[in-house]
Deep mutational scan, measured.
Amino acid sequence: SSRTRFTDYQLRVLQDFFDANAYPKDDEFEQLSNLLNLPTRVIVVWFQNARQKARK
Rank of each mutant, 00 (worst) to 15 (best):
residue 1 S to Y: 06
residue 13 V to S: 11
residue 48 Q to E: 14
residue 9 Y to Q: 15
residue 38 L to W: 01
residue 12 R to D: 13
residue 44 V to F: 08
residue 41 R to K: 14
residue 37 N to C: 12
residue 34 N to S: 13
residue 10 Q to D: 03
residue 55 R to T: 11
residue 35 L to M: 14
residue 17 F to T: 10
residue 4 T to H: 10
residue 49 N to L: 05
residue 9 Y to D: 12
residue 38 L to E: 06
residue 21 N to P: 02
residue 47 F to A: 02
residue 24 P to D: 03
residue 40 T to D: 05
residue 33 S to A: 09
residue 18 F to M: 05
residue 5 R to G: 15
residue 56 K to A: 13
residue 44 V to N: 09
residue 21 N to Y: 02
residue 47 F to H: 03
residue 35 L to R: 14
residue 49 N to P: 00
residue 25 K to N: 10
residue 7 T to C: 03
residue 28 E to A: 07
residue 1 S to Q: 03
residue 46 W to F: 06
residue 7 T to D: 06
residue 42 V to T: 15
residue 20 A to G: 09
residue 12 R to V: 04
residue 7 T to F: 02
residue 12 R to N: 13
residue 5 R to E: 15
residue 6 F to R: 02
residue 43 I to Q: 02
residue 21 N to A: 04
residue 30 E to T: 02
residue 4 T to F: 13
residue 35 L to C: 08
residue 25 K to Y: 02
residue 13 V to F: 06
residue 41 R to A: 13
residue 41 R to D: 15
residue 40 T to F: 10
residue 24 P to V: 02
residue 10 Q to H: 03
residue 25 K to P: 06
residue 50 A to S: 10
residue 24 P to C: 02
residue 14 L to E: 01
residue 32 L to E: 00
residue 24 P to S: 02
residue 44 V to K: 10
residue 15 Q to S: 07
residue 51 R to W: 05
residue 40 T to L: 10
residue 11 L to H: 07
residue 29 F to A: 05
residue 37 N to Y: 05
residue 33 S to V: 04
residue 24 P to Y: 01
residue 46 W to V: 01
residue 52 Q to C: 12
residue 12 R to W: 03
residue 12 R to E: 04
residue 8 D to H: 06
residue 28 E to M: 05
residue 22 A to E: 14
residue 47 F to P: 00
residue 34 N to A: 14
residue 4 T to L: 09
residue 53 K to H: 13
residue 9 Y to R: 07
residue 36 L to H: 00
residue 48 Q to S: 12
residue 31 Q to Y: 07
residue 28 E to N: 04
residue 29 F to M: 06
residue 43 I to P: 02
residue 10 Q to V: 01
residue 31 Q to D: 07
residue 6 F to L: 05
residue 41 R to Q: 13
residue 7 T to W: 02
residue 45 V to L: 09
residue 35 L to Q: 05
residue 26 D to R: 08
residue 42 V to P: 13
residue 11 L to M: 15
residue 38 L to V: 07
residue 5 R to M: 15
residue 24 P to N: 00
residue 34 N to K: 14
residue 18 F to A: 06
residue 26 D to L: 05
residue 15 Q to W: 07
residue 20 A to T: 11
residue 4 T to G: 04
residue 37 N to Q: 09
residue 24 P to H: 00
residue 8 D to F: 03
residue 28 E to D: 15
residue 29 F to T: 06
residue 25 K to Q: 06
residue 45 V to E: 15
residue 11 L to N: 12
residue 31 Q to P: 01
residue 4 T to V: 02
residue 26 D to M: 13
residue 10 Q to W: 00
residue 49 N to Q: 07
residue 12 R to H: 13
residue 33 S to W: 01
residue 38 L to A: 05
residue 38 L to G: 01
residue 22 A to F: 05
residue 40 T to S: 13
residue 16 D to M: 05
residue 38 L to I: 13
residue 32 L to I: 08
residue 25 K to L: 09
residue 2 S to K: 07
residue 45 V to N: 14
residue 56 K to L: 04
residue 42 V to H: 13
residue 5 R to D: 15
residue 52 Q to K: 10
residue 41 R to T: 14
residue 8 D to A: 09
residue 10 Q to Y: 01
residue 19 D to R: 12
residue 35 L to Y: 09
residue 13 V to L: 10
residue 50 A to K: 10
residue 18 F to P: 01
residue 33 S to N: 02
residue 1 S to F: 05
residue 47 F to S: 02
residue 8 D to M: 07
residue 3 R to I: 14
residue 5 R to K: 15
residue 24 P to A: 03
residue 45 V to M: 09
residue 48 Q to D: 14
residue 19 D to C: 11
residue 14 L to Y: 00
residue 2 S to M: 15
residue 53 K to D: 15
residue 36 L to F: 02
residue 28 E to G: 04
residue 37 N to R: 11
residue 14 L to C: 03
residue 3 R to Q: 15
residue 38 L to H: 00
residue 14 L to W: 00
residue 20 A to Q: 09
residue 21 N to F: 03
residue 19 D to L: 00
residue 7 T to R: 03
residue 21 N to Q: 06
residue 8 D to N: 06
residue 51 R to P: 00
residue 38 L to R: 03
residue 52 Q to M: 08
residue 5 R to I: 15
residue 13 V to E: 06
residue 38 L to C: 04
residue 34 N to H: 04
residue 28 E to W: 02
residue 13 V to P: 01
residue 47 F to R: 00
residue 55 R to M: 07
residue 29 F to S: 04
residue 48 Q to L: 05
residue 44 V to R: 10
residue 44 V to Q: 12
residue 6 F to A: 02
residue 42 V to W: 08
residue 41 R to G: 13
residue 19 D to T: 13
residue 24 P to Q: 01
residue 28 E to F: 03
residue 10 Q to N: 01
residue 35 L to H: 10
residue 15 Q to N: 10
residue 26 D to S: 07
residue 33 S to C: 03
residue 43 I to S: 01
residue 41 R to H: 14
residue 19 D to K: 08
residue 41 R to N: 15
residue 55 R to Q: 13
residue 13 V to A: 12
residue 36 L to S: 06
residue 33 S to H: 10
residue 34 N to T: 08
residue 12 R to Y: 03
residue 9 Y to E: 12
residue 6 F to P: 01
residue 22 A to K: 08
residue 3 R to L: 15
residue 45 V to G: 14
residue 37 N to S: 10
residue 35 L to G: 11
residue 4 T to S: 13
residue 42 V to S: 14
residue 26 D to W: 05
residue 22 A to T: 12
residue 50 A to R: 11
residue 42 V to E: 15
residue 46 W to K: 01
residue 43 I to C: 05
residue 32 L to T: 04
residue 50 A to M: 13
residue 33 S to E: 03
residue 16 D to N: 07
residue 27 D to C: 06
residue 25 K to M: 04
residue 1 S to M: 06
residue 34 N to F: 02
residue 9 Y to P: 07
residue 25 K to V: 09
residue 13 V to T: 09
residue 30 E to G: 05
residue 42 V to Q: 11
residue 46 W to H: 03
residue 48 Q to A: 08
residue 48 Q to H: 04
residue 14 L to D: 01
residue 18 F to I: 06
residue 27 D to A: 09
residue 12 R to K: 14
residue 48 Q to P: 00
residue 26 D to Y: 10
residue 11 L to Y: 04
residue 35 L to E: 10
residue 12 R to G: 06
residue 53 K to Y: 09
residue 45 V to Y: 07
residue 38 L to P: 00
residue 44 V to D: 14
residue 23 Y to F: 14
residue 12 R to I: 05
residue 36 L to E: 00
residue 27 D to G: 14
residue 23 Y to E: 14
residue 43 I to D: 01
